[in-house]
Design a protein around this nucleic acid. Structure first.
Lengths: 155, 155
DNA sequence: GGTGCAGTTTCCGTTAAAGTCAACGACTTA
DNA sequence: TAAGTCGTTGACTTTAACGGAAACTGCACC
């Protein structure tokens, strides 16, 4: 329980390329669970805290989700974790089952969203790629012509 | 030259799920080339205009780019198009070649960005997916247990 | 041609989200 | 103990729009 390395806000901020202010802000709007503190009041972030934060940052950077959307996801995850703990103890098998089902649904939904996004971006990528192929073709043609001229001239 | 169908701002907005206000805003910040107008001053968007807009909207929606970032991309594309036209007329083969090379570089850079993004999102997706697999496994185990109990009881 | 009305124009002002800045005291650590 | 961090609070900023006023346009109907 004590071999965990806790980081202070500045270190965490640097690691994730945010500012300490932003971390406090995320906490303020309920996006981040309040981390533990030193006696003096300084925030101490656990590995789990940082993990959650990384998740948040990625949803934001990669998907462009708003903090409100991210909050929903995070809350869903949090509830999943709660259910998981509850599920370990709940003697009632049916309760366990229902908890897991709910959690599973949340996760699968997330995967679906990501898959959808992947497909759309891939489509966009292909459009750009095809355009670049066409340009490349044209370029090579020009280069061939240019080469021919050079050869002719130098003969 | 006249079989093009021009759309008014409201129709375009509806089609792309934006508001007319937003279209004017994009134009104001230089993200959108000013479209042509009717005699009375109403904006008329060509198919090409709408195409560019679709590109913008997708960069925004799919990648979460800021309007400033999108502007850079759009400007790069615009310069590519300019180069392309220039390249058609430029009698000088070397000039053509250089234009095409620059354009190609822009496009390939774009593809790279998209590929990078795709990889990162795929990674995220896989993490979620694996978690969901683990939960599913656990769920099936519970369901099996539950079934066993039922059979036992009903015997 | 006149009238009505929805859609559009420009010109403001306002807003919501996501931070950023500043001040100043309290805490940590070298 | 001095230098560097951190805490809180409240005001400020930037981005990406939204809303409304007042006037103008396009088009359909009479």
């Amino acid at each position: 329980m004590s071999d965990e390395r806790y980081l202070q806000i500045g270190e965490v901020a640097e690691q994730l390329k945010l500012t300490p202010r932003t971390l406090r802000y995320y906490e303020e709007i309920g996006l981040l669970e309040p981390p533990s503190r030193m006696e003096g009041g300084f925030r101490l972030y656990s590995a789990a805290d940082i993990n959650r934060l990384e998740n948040i940052v990625q949803l934001k950077r990669l998907l462009g989700f708003s903090l409100a959307e991210i909050k929903q996801v995070v809350e869903a995850m949090e509830s999943l974790k709660l259910l998981r703990q509850e599920s370990r103890q709940a003697g009632d098998l049916e309760t366990k089952r229902d908890s897991l089902r709910m959690g599973l649904e949340i996760l699968e939904q997330q995967v679906e969203v990501l898959d959808g996004r992947l497909g759309q971006i891939a489509e966009l990528r292909d459009r750009y790629h095809e355009r670049s192929l066409r340009v490349r073709e044209r370029l090579e043609q020009i280069e061939a012509e240019l080469l021919a001229v050079t050869v002719n001239t130098s003969s």
